[in-house]
C-alpha cells in the first residue's frame, strides 16, 4: 500500500475509527470466498496494476481511465464514513477517494442517462471464490445507482483507506462507497461504469429479489425478510460483550440524502 495525500472533508464523522486491522481482515468479497477472512487470505492474487476503468454508454465523452491517472488528476479527500453491512454489523472507515460526480462530469452524460451501472473485474484465475462448483452469485458482480444518487456529494470512488492505497481485500484499486446504503452496494475492484436509461441489474437483487432491493438504503424500519435491521453491532467495540446500537435512518446521512427519496414508498422500494 502506497501513501496517498488527501484533504479533510466536512462529510467526515468524528466517531471512533474501526481499527485498520479489523477493516482489512473482516470483509465480504465473495469473489475470494464467502468467509469473512477469505478476502484477506486470498485477494493477494488479484493483479491491480495496471488497471483501467472503462466509462461508456450514454455519455458524450466515453473514456478509459487508468486508475493511477485518476488518482493523480483528482483532488483526493479523506472521507470518514459509517459503513453498515446488511448482515447487521457496522464499521467507521477512513476512506480516501474523490466524488463520483467529478468523474461523471468529465464524461458528460447525455440527457437520456438515468442510471449508472458498475461492474467488477471478472478474473476467475485471480479470484478463487469465483471458481466454485455452485457459484454463490452470478459473475461478474454488478451494481447500480440512480444518476442523482451517483451525483450526490457523499458518493465517492475510493482508492484508499487509512491514508494508503486500498488493500486488495477492500476492493483495490478502485471501489464505490455509498455510505447511506448497505455495504453490498459498494462494488469493489471496478472495471466498468456505464450510463444507461433503465434501472440496471444488481447482483444481490438477482440472487434474492425479495431480500435485496435495488435501492438498499439503510433503513431500521424495513427489516430484511430473515433478520431485523433495527440494531447493529459496531465492530471492535466491546469484544465479546459488544452492545447493539440502534441503526439510524439512511445510516445517519438523512440530512444529505432523504430528499432523493421524497414521495417514494421505501417499504416497497427497499
Amino acid at each position: 500500500a502506497a501513501p496517498l495525500q488527501a484533504g479533510k472533508s466536512p462529510f467526515s464523522t468524528d466517531e471512533k475509527l474501526t481499527s485498520r486491522e479489523d477493516v482489512t481482515s473482516y470483509n465480504n468479497f465473495y469473489e475470494f470466498g464467502t468467509g469473512k477472512d477469505d478476502p484477506a487470505a486470498k485477494a493477494k492474487s488479484l493483479k491491480t496494476s495496471p488497471w483501467t476503468v472503462k466509462v461508456d454508454g450514454m455519455v458524450g465523452k466515453p473514456a478509459e481511465f487508468a486508475v493511477e491517472d485518476l488518482i493523480k488528476s483528482s483532488a483526493l479527500e479523506e472521507r470518514i464514513y459509517r459503513m453498515r453491512c446488511v448482515e447487521g454489523w457496522s464499521m467507521v472507515i477512513p476512506w480516501v477517494g474523490f466524488p463520483l460526480a467529478d468523474l461523471i462530469k468529465r464524461v458528460e452524460p447525455l440527457g437520456s442517462a438515468k442510471y449508472v451501472a458498475f461492474e467488477t473485474a471478472y478474473r476467475p484465475e485471480e479470484m478463487p471464490g469465483m471458481d466454485t462448483l455452485f457459484p454463490v452469485l452470478e459473475w461478474p458482480y454488478v451494481e447500480g445507482l440512480r444518476l442523482d444518487e451517483a451525483m450526490n456529494p457523499l458518493t465517492i470512488l475510493a482508492v484508499g483507506l487509512y491514508g494508503e492505497t486500498l488493500p486488495n481485500q477492500n476492493g483495490a484499486p478502485i471501489r464505490l462507497v455509498v455510505p447511506w446504503k448497505y455495504g453490498f452496494k459498494g462494488i469493489k475492484s471496478i472495471t466498468r461504469i456505464s450510463f444507461v436509461d433503465k434501472q440496471p441489474p444488481t447482483s444481490w437483487n438477482k440472487q434474492a429479489p425479495s431480500e435485496y432491493g435495488f435501492y438498499a438504503n439503510v433503513n431500521p424500519s424495513v427489516d430484511h425478510p430473515r433478520w431485523s435491521q433495527a440494531t447493529e453491532r459496531r465492530i471492535g467495540e466491546g469484544g465479546l460483550f459488544v452492545k447493539r446500537r440502534p441503526t439510524l435512518m439512511f445510516n445517519g446521512y438523512a440530512e444529505q440524502v432523504a430528499s432523493l427519496y421524497t414521495g417514494m414508498d421505501l417499504r416497497k422500494l427497499y
Partner: peptide
C-alpha cells in the same frame, strides 16, 4: 479465546 480477544473482528458472532 473470546475473553482474550482472539476471535477476530466480530468475536461475539464467531463464538
Amino acid at each position: 479465546a473470546g475473553i482474550m480477544d482472539q476471535l477476530g473482528a466480530d468475536p461475539m458472532r464467531y463464538l
